[in-house]
Computed example of a mutant assay.
Amino acid sequence: MALDDYYLLGRSGLRVSRLALGTMNFGQDGFHAPYGKTEDEARAIFRAYIDAGGNFIDTADFYTAGESERIVGRLIAEAGVRERMVLTTKATNSVDTGDPNAGGNSRKHLIRALDDSLRRLGTDYVDLFLLHTWDRITPVDEVLRTLDDLSRSGKIRYAGLSDVPSWYAARAQTLADAHSLTPMVSLQLPYSLIERAIETEHVPMAQQLGLGITAWSPLGGGFLTGKYRRDETRTMSGEGRLTGDGAAGQSWTDRQWDLLPAVRDVADELDVTMAQVAVNWAATQPGVASAIVGASNPGQLESSIAALGSELPAELRAQLDEASAVPPSSVYRMFTPEYQGWMVSPGAKVADKPAGYRPPVVNWS
């Protein structure tokens, strides 16, 4: 399963690599600066990706205050691979805190954001344009009309969503189908062995409605690499961005810590790293079109690519699934196998009624 084995993205004819290159750390400005890379460092990572056959690049206007897009654009031009790349960018986050219309998913902001991204990327179109997140304000039909107009203008080739509720994605796709608007082809969401919440609704929704899931943070922010430990005071230790100056302040549950030995056992069985196990699992899960991987250096990226070199045996995948499973909550418990006995058998015939049966007559007087 090398990077030059391409897969269709959702209900589209667009072919993408099973691993996308995340460029959130390209550049040393803005929110992501603590773990950002210089352009020379980014170039080595980018070249390793395209040399391996990769064609799916993920960035956003918000990453390193726009520097990620500038670097990505220069690297693509330098390598002469613009038409070969499936270039993705995203917009939602505010680029000017003093302007109320400089963020969100309004028509005004999305058009402005895309034009700014195209200038930074040095191109006249992007292959895939995503909402970065749900803004909880803009009506979904306004978003759809905007994306449709941008598609018709030629500035974007495909449209998609990132980090939205499943009902929002379902409504967007249904309205797009009903009104012959540009459909959504992808849905970018956090997904890993320690973060499987999207399986409850997002995954089956995406499979039904033709959205290919692109999984971000398949390593759980680095947690699944196994380089972190918890001491007697239940404090995380180890060297990495989860404990350094750029730490995101994530707290980890006992269930997540208890998962690590299972991942380590599978890695030892296959003679690979824990990170490779985690990447392979996420990239090959149902509904996932591509997993987004970042890297601090070419060697780290090459290790992620090597994770696709073999299949996870069914029995080892089952071990990981069991160790990482989260019991369904609330109403979702009703949809589990142990509840099926309460329901009509899926194989029951519709006509299984006594001869001469008629519905009772209701007297409304």
Rank of each mutant, 00 (worst) to 15 (best):
E195K: 07
Y63E: 03
T133E: 12
D5G: 14
K37P: 01
A275Y: 04
L211E: 11
H179K: 14
D4L: 05
L19K: 05
H202G: 09
S345Q: 09
R82K: 08
V277A: 08
G287L: 02
R230M: 11
L131E: 02
Q188D: 05
S117T: 02
A291E: 01
E39V: 03
L242E: 10
T23S: 08
S290D: 04
V361R: 15
P190E: 07
D177G: 07
A65N: 13
G347Q: 14
Y125C: 09
V126T: 11
N101C: 08
S12G: 06
P313F: 08
V16D: 10
A206I: 04
G22E: 04
S12D: 01
P313N: 12
N55I: 14
G54L: 12
W342N: 13
P34A: 04
V361S: 08
L209V: 04
L209F: 09
V350A: 15
A20K: 06
Y7P: 00
H109Y: 12
M274D: 15
A60T: 02
A283H: 05
T336P: 10
L189S: 08
E41P: 02
A102V: 09
G160R: 03
R11M: 10
L308D: 07
Y357N: 11
V203Y: 01
L8T: 14
G98D: 04
Q250R: 14
T200P: 00
Q250V: 15
P328S: 14
A176S: 10
W257N: 14
G249F: 02
T59K: 01
P165Q: 07
P354V: 10
T146F: 07
S186Y: 07
A351K: 04
Y191T: 00
R82Q: 00
L316K: 09
Q300A: 14
V293E: 01
A172G: 03
P218L: 06
R119T: 14
A42F: 03
L219P: 05
I194Q: 10
N105G: 12
V288R: 10
M1D: 04
G80V: 04
D149E: 14
S192C: 05
D61K: 06
A77G: 11
A42Y: 05
A215I: 01
H202E: 11
S345L: 06
L193A: 08
R18Q: 12
P359Q: 14
G154C: 03
T146N: 03
D321A: 09
A170P: 00
A77T: 11
